[in-house]
Design a binder for these strands. Structure first.
Lengths: 338, 338
DNA sequence: TGTAACGACCGACACGTGTCAGTAGCGCAT
DNA sequence: ATGCGCTACTGACACGTGTCGGTCGTTACA
């Protein structure tokens, strides 16, 4: 067994056939064992031996050229903004797909969208594509369908008009958070709306929070705030000067919940007695701080396997029926802070 | 322009050629414009029009079958444990590779390793593979080399014997943290060693911390601790009963730093006056809490572009020379907590 | 008028695989 | 002796692409 050089030419099934003293077709039959084909035990063994000897791996490009598509589920992912939230989702999706002999491929590019992006994705001839909803615009779906992609899914905050969408509706997040606080008896509420790269998240959560407050006839004030500690401290100082400050705050996300709790204690207020605080995202540290942080969780893990089911169904049976609407229902994980 | 069905057969360059009234070769020349080939402007335009009309995207499998390899840099990634730390690294790597017309593909499978895994990766015929060091065992490297992979890299905590490795040495992390505390004048130190899924990280950081303390002749105690809040509280209570408790603690990671700061204040101690605290990983919340959290940062972003440079160098020029050793030097980001 | 050079395009091949149709060998019933 | 069915295998084709060599028409020059 000679030492291979990097960049060498890969061994082909012809090499294996030659070494095993059989035809190339036989090699293919041994490796794929299609229904209704018999190969004698000793031939099979000779082939497998040659495979191992050469370190042969069938060329995925060639197979998918031949078969028309691959075993790839493509997940174009902008890693930047959604990192923590999507991790469990991807994790579960991966495992579920692996169980079906499919492999998840995460294509990490953040730049392209629309038809251009679709052409890039289509070039890989994947079985399925699960893309962010707002990147599937301007004919992107058509390009993918034309390219033979069997299942097209969207995920994100907006439902896609033509494609089943896994909806992370952040209005719901705001809604359940505020409803929880109202159920706890609070009547004067505040909602932090963070600026910065994830501002859109804050806006949506605010919208849901506002709706919930209106429904219940409870006062809710909007507080815009930058992603720095001093802003949060200023807000608390302001509240301290008021005669009727809020008694509970939905912080918009866990980072801000952490900040505002720190700020409150810095100013001598206690949580949750003087002020209840609810975060969102259910990050790991929610369980690790004093007081433990009540937060809104999207059980994205469950959703991962759900998405996998949908994908495999669409791939196997070929009735492609848009309109399935998977909504992630957020729920409040009640801890000590509110 | 008819409505395409999902699962349709993708258009080929022959379709484009037919529609444009030229030969297939001409289509290929228009799309790739190889050196020394001329195509008239009007022909070119007719072809491009047909391309758009059909939504044609050249089949990546077919191209890489023809050319022998793809434009893919494969990154087999177990998303689970390293999430936050790797995010910036991947982010930067993606952008750097995109600049070279290469695309990063993250293959999310956690199960396989060694030669089996290598065969799976090799099947894609990628240009380069950047895998976790401890998965490149048992002939995996040979399989990849045999499969024509031009550049093989490892990343992780151990240097790979045969392959350039990007080393995240967590002993260094412990070392710089403790050295920082010593420089600040502390002489009685503690180091938290977390249990749980990331225990190995804690062990390495502890090893480095211990070495730094020994070098300086300073006392450092090891404190094993579970990933729950109560353990941390118990530790602080224990310290309060001692006559000469530590004056500074390296918490092992940012989560524990957060916990121990909370616990300390719960018990009436102030940070950093009564106890200095240093975390590690430099998570986003370090800047958002009171007091701001001093932490050890690995500037993985820089490393991403470094890795990209190495990869492209190895791919373009074909002199493959193992032994390059990229070490990520951690550095202390000094804030208020210690 | 002959021919050389050149621009613009085309035909044919190879890449590695899966699979269909076919064949050689053999036992067995007619 | 002939035909049939079965096992175990092989030969040949198609998948979609990039590229080499070749051809056809036009222009330039002697």
């Amino acid at each position: 067994m000679s030492v291979p050089e990097a960049g060498a030419k890969p061994p082909t099934s012809s090499d294996v056939a030659r070494l095993a003293g059989v035809s190339r077709s036989t090699v293919s039959y041994v490796l794929n064992s299609p229904p209704g084909v018999r190969v004698s035990a000793q031939t099979r063994e000779r082939v497998m031996l040659a495979v191992r000897e050469l370190g042969y791996a069938p060329s995925a490009p060639a197979r998918s050229l031949r078969s028309g598509n691959s075993d790839v589920v493509l997940f174009p992912l902008p890693l930047q903004p959604m990192g923590q939230l999507l991790e469990a989702f991807i994790d579960e999706l991966t495992e579920a797909l692996n169980r079906h002999e499919l492999s998840l491929l995460i294509h990490a590019d953040r730049t392209s969208r629309g038809a251009d992006a679709a052409r890039q994705w289509a070039a890989l001839r994947p079985l399925a594509v699960m893309a962010e909803s707002n990147r599937l615009t301007g004919g992107a779906v058509d390009v993918l369908k034309r390219a033979g992609v069997r299942a097209i899914f969207a995920w994100g905050r907006e439902e896609h008009p033509d494609v089943p969408t896994a909806i992370f509706d952040n209005r719901d997040t705001g809604r359940v958070a505020v409803r929880h606080l109202i159920d706890r008896g609070h009547r004067r509420l505040a909602c932090l709306v963070p600026s910065g790269p994830l501002a859109f998240l804050g806006e949506e959560r605010w919208a849901g929070a506002q709706a919930a407050a209106e429904d219940a006839g409870v006062s809710l004030r909007r507080v815009d705030v930058g992603y720095v500690r001093e802003d949060v401290l200023a807000i608390v100082r302001q509240w301290q000067r008021e005669s009727e400050p809020p008694t509970a705050v939905f912080a918009g996300n866990d980072d801000f919940a952490l900040m505002i709790i720190s700020a409150l204690r810095e100013c001598g207020w206690s949580v949750p007695d003087d002020m209840a605080v609810v975060g969102a995202d259910d990050l790991p540290f929610c369980d690790l701080v004093w007081p433990r942080l009540t937060s809104v969780s999207m059980h994205t893990r469950t959703m991962g396997s759900g998405a996998s089911d949908a994908i495999t169904t669409l791939i196997r049976g070929r009735d492609y029926r848009p309109g399935g609407r998977m909504v992630v229902h957020p729920r409040v994980v009640v801890r000590e802070s509110g």
